[in-house]
């Protein structure tokens, strides 16, 4: 009996051991989203949108209630076949350009979008002309009559001393 008991235990252990790896690979986890492709599209769109309640977080990164609702709204609209532009239009009609992390290009934002490049070419141009002028000034300075005279004087003095 004792032997049998041990055998049963051993058998149990073996069965358990056989089960163990199965338990370990119980299965592949599934994405939280039902439709991962759509989810990806929603996330990449909402990364460029601003959460309104939490202010400086993107809609994608925020845990706020409203952000979750808006993500759901975006999901639903995408599922019903709306394009990214249509979804963005829907949001800006309600919340204004404030929700866009990438401000649209319009006369009010020309300075924002072109400003840095105007500044770049402006300063680069400015410096080009400054350097040219500087070069001629340096050249004329070194050749000015007064300078020459003084140099000669100094040289003359030095010559006298030595």
């Amino acid at each position: 009996m004792k032997m049998d008991m041990k055998r049963v235990q051993q058998a149990g252990l073996i069965i358990f051991a056989l089960l163990l790896p199965h338990a370990a690979i119980a299965g592949e986890a599934v994405p939280v989203a039902e439709d991962p492709v759509l989810e990806q599209r929603m996330i990449s769109l909402s990364e460029d949108l601003r959460c309104l309640v939490c202010q400086n977080e993107s809609l994608a990164g925020s845990h706020a209630d409203l952000a979750q609702d808006l993500r759901q709204e975006i999901r639903d609209q995408m599922r019903s076949g709306k394009s990214d532009e249509q979804v963005v239009d829907y949001l800006t009609q309600r919340y204004g350009d404030f929700v866009l992390y990438k401000p649209p290009l319009k006369p009010l934002t020309w300075l924002l979008w072109f400003g840095p490049f105007v500044l770049l070419f402006g300063t680069a141009g400015g410096f080009y002309f400054y350097l040219k002028r500087r070069g001629t000034r340096l050249a004329s300075e070194s050749l000015s009559a007064e300078e020459k005279k003084r140099v000669e004087e100094l040289l003359g003095n030095n010559g006298n001393e030595s």
Partner: peptide, 20 residues
């Protein structure tokens, strides 16, 4: 500062974020 500029001039509110 651009959002502040526009707001101070009463020209509306915008956000400038990572894409810009």
């Amino acid at each position: 500062l651009y959002p502040l500029f526009l707001d101070a001039l009463g020209l509306g509110k915008i956000s400038v974020g990572p894409p810009y």
